[in-house]
Design a protein around this nucleic acid. Sequence first.
DNA 1: GTCTATATCTCGATAGAC
DNA 2: GTCTATCGAGATATAGAC
Lengths: 190, 190
Amino acid sequence: MDKEKEILAAALKLFVEFGFHGTPTSKIAKEAGVANGTLFHYFKTKEDLIVGLYIRIKENLNGYLLSKVDDQSTLETRMKTIYEESLQWALIHRDEFYFIQQFHFSPHLAKVSAEDIEKQTRLHVGLLGEGVKSKIFKSLPVGLIGTILGSQLYGVYQYLVSNDLSASKQKQVIDETFVLLWEMITNIKQ
Amino acid sequence: MDKEKEILAAALKLFVEFGFHGTPTSKIAKEAGVANGTLFHYFKTKEDLIVGLYIRIKENLNGYLLSKVDDQSTLETRMKTIYEESLQWALIHRDEFYFIQQFHFSPHLAKVSAEDIEKQTRLHVGLLGEGVKSKIFKSLPVGLIGTILGSQLYGVYQYLVSNDLSASKQKQVIDETFVLLWEMITNIKQ
DNA sequence: GTCTATATCTCGATAGAC
DNA sequence: GTCTATCGAGATATAGAC
């Protein structure tokens, strides 16, 4: 692993444990096994490091989801894939997932450019627009469906990590909660 | 307003805008109109101030909800009251609500005692337990219902603040999303 | 690119008069 | 309880050798 990646990995680990404030750049450099000055060679400021870490993590998540979604399948299948794989990714990358939330409730969020945000949400926005246009979804504001979906995803994640379930139990919860969600937002009646 | 309250109000405002790290105690004292040393008279450390602020805000929210819930009414009515009034409180106390989330994704969360957490969740835990016991809820883990409820509440809040709706439109969204939620977690079929 | 050494600054917290 | 003044620690960022 090159030094830049070592720095990012060390920063992630320490930020999640001690917060942005509680993590001096000197500790990050030490944990990464590089000199203090080297950190500032790769990232001009501490904030650059924080924002850069956030963008890379989101790119990883999005790339993972894109690799899992089959464009040929139905909307329901694609949405289920996004739902399921987002949770699987979050369970495997817990520090990364926590960091995303931590970052969202920090003033650093304001430093992310509009283009980066658009890139990060394109996949989800496209699917939701399709659901509304095709009348598969209930006639609710698309923004409302999006936030409900996102927040349920996060809620289920919280449940999964706070209860140490077996992999098969985890899968069962993910499947069941997707059905609940799908029944809630679509017109399909049981 | 006494000095202690001035300090807390100033701290809330600045923490929300600049984060915990970006807010020195000197700025809090200045904003509150007190001397630097006075802040440390009321709060031994900066962390004491942060945690104290969190506990007071949660007490305010809980006190508000308790004052709105009528113990004599049905479970559905009580749950709807909690849902609706939580959102109304959040909309009126936006800084406070943001601060709660910000605090939850910070290392300061670990400094809250188990007793304080129990106090803060007693009302919700009681209602959920009642719903499961009386079989009004689907046979899902109570923890799962709780996190889904909490996360949908937060999601709807996000939607309400990011779309500047009229009071009546807000009320409509709150009512509609409660129905969606209630249908999702209960056995009642349409 | 990477290191060591360090400049510069700011912050949290304290001491002590009133 | 409240203020002024300040200490000491530790932070970010830079300079310059290799």
